[in-house]
Amino acid sequence: MMNDRSRDIGPFVPAPDDDMIVCRCEEITKGEIRRAVHDGMYTVTEIRRWLRAGMGLCQGQTCSKLVKGIAARELGISPALLEPASSRAPMRPTEMKVLGREEGACA
C-alpha cells in the first residue's frame, strides 16, 4: 500500500504524559515515540529501528501493542492498519554457548 511520507499529520504537540516510559526494556518514552512519528517514522518497524522500542529483551512482547496504539493515534489511523512487528528466532534470549552447542543440525 502506498504510504506518502510527506502527508500532513499535523504538528507535534507536547503532552503531559510524554515522559511516560512505554518500552520498558529500552526505556523509550511516549513522547519519543510520538516525536519519531512526526520525524517520518510512520511504521512500527521504523520506530523500532529508530528508537529501539521493542528491540529489548522481551522483543516487544510487552509494548508492541502500546507502541502501535500511540503511533496510530499520532497518524490518525486505525492501529490495525499498522504492520505487526516481525518475529525472529530465538523466541527466548539464549546464551551463545547454548546456540553454539547444536544437535541434529543440517543445512
Binding site: P90, R92, T94, K97, V98, L99, R101, E102, E103, G104, A105, C106
Partner: peptide, 8 residues
C-alpha cells in the same frame, strides 16, 4: 533449547 544445547 533442551538443557544446554539447541536441538533440531
Amino acid at each position: 533449547r533442551i538443557g544446554d544445547s539447541l536441538r533440531h
